[in-house]
C-alpha cells in the first residue's frame, strides 16, 4: 500500500494567523529516499507548512502524519519518538548561543541517549567532519560565519542519524559559492546516509539542482507537485512568474480596496 510508505502525509491542511488564512487545503506527501523541495515566494506559506509538519503548530483543519503517526493526536512519548527520528536545520541555524559548537552538536545525544561521554564526543566530531567543520568544536556560535553556522546546524540535525531531515532556507543570506557547497552537501548526505530530505527554499537555482521533486506553493495553496522537468515546463502562469522572476499583476478588488481604506477595524 502506497499510503503506509509515505514518510510525511499531509491532507487538507488549513492554517490561520488570526483572521488571515495562511494555508488552504494543502495536500503534501513525501516518499522515502527523495529530496523534496518546497518552493514558493515570500508569504506563500512554505515556512508555515514546515512548522506544522514539525509539530510546532496545531492545524486548524486537516491531518498531518509524520512517520505514520498523526502528530496532532500523538502523546508525549510518540512525539519524542518521532523527534528522535527527524533532524531540523533552521533558517538562522538556531544554535544555542550559550554552548560551544561541539556541545551544540552533541546536545541531542546528551539529552536523548545514554551513551557515554567519549562516544558522544567522537560521534559529534564525526558529524562535524561530515559538514567540513572538523576542528571547530571549541568555538562559540558567535565566532562562526553565516555559512559555518548553517553547516554546524546541519551537523546537529544529523547527529542522531535521522530518517527524515528538514532544511529551512539553506541558501538564505549566503554567497553563491557557499550556498552551492551546501547544495552539494545535501546531495552527499542523501547518498551517504540514505536520508529523506525536505528543503524549503525560494532559490530557484538551488531548488533545481538538489530536488527530486518540487512542491510549488503560492498564497497558501499547492500549485503543483512534480519532478524538476515537470515544474520547468508547467504552463501555470504563477509558476512561470516565479521561474522567470516576473512581478505578479495584482488585481484590485474595488470594494475590498474601499473597505480597507475606510473601515477602522479592517
Amino acid at each position: 500500500m502506497a499510503d503506509a510508505e509515505a514518510l510525511i502525509d499531509v491532507r487538507g491542511l488549513e492554517a490561520w494567523y488570526g483572521k488571515r488564512r495562511i494555508l488552504a487545503d494543502v495536500d503534501f506527501r513525501v516518499e522515502p529516499g527523495e529530496i523534496r523541495v518546497i518552493m514558493g515566494g515570500s508569504g506563500s506559506g512554505k515556512s508555515t507548512l514546515l512548522r506544522h509538519v514539525l509539530g510546532l503548530h496545531r492545524p486548524s483543519a486537516g491531518t498531518i502524519r509524520v512517520l505514520g503517526v498523526d502528530i496532532a493526536h500523538a502523546d508525549a512519548a510518540q512525539m519524542l519518538d518521532i523527534r528522535r527520528k527527524i533532524g531540523v536545520s533552521f533558517q538562522g541555524g538556531a544554535l544555542l548561543t550559550s554552548l560551544s559548537v561541539g556541545d551544540n552538536v552533541a546536545l541531542p545525544l546528551r539529552e536523548l541517549t545514554t551513551l557515554d561521554e567519549n562516544t558522544i564526543r567522537i560521534m559529534s566530531r564525526i558529524k562535524l567532519e561530515v559538514v567540513n567543520l572538523g576542528g571547530f568544536q571549541d568555538l562559540m556560535p558567535s565566532q562562526l560565519s553565516g555559512g559555518m553556522v548553517k553547516r554546524a546546524a546541519l551537523a546537529r540535525a544529523i547527529v542522531m542519524d535521522p530518517k527524515l531531515l528538514f532544511f529551512d532556507e539553506p541558501s538564505a543570506g549566503l554567497d553563491p559559492v557557499v550556498s552551492a557547497e551546501l547544495d552539494e552537501l545535501i546531495l552527499r548526505l542523501r547518498d551517504a546516509l540514505r536520508m529523506t530530505i525536505v528543503v524549503v527554499t525560494h532559490e530557484l537555482e538551488s531548488a533545481f539542482k538538489i530536488a527530486d521533486t518540487i512542491t510549488v506553493l503560492d498564497q497558501g495553496r499547492v500549485l503543483m507537485t512534480g519532478t524538476v522537468d515537470e515544474v520547468r515546463n508547467a504552463d501555470n502562469e504563477r509558476i512561470q512568474d516565479l521561474l522567470n522572476r516576473r512581478p505578479r499583476e495584482v488585481v484590485v478588488d474595488v470594494d475590498a480596496y474601499m473597505k480597507r481604506l475606510t473601515e477602522e477595524d479592517a
Binding site: G55, L56, R83, R84, V88, F90, Q91, A94, T97, S98
Partner: peptide, 25 residues
Amino acid sequence: ARIGSMTVSQEVDALNVIGIEPVRY
C-alpha cells in the same frame, strides 16, 4: 532576556524539534 532571545532566534523551536522540552531544559 535569555529565554526571550532564544525564542526570537528559534532556539526554543530547535529544542522542541530535537525532543528536549523547553520547560524541563
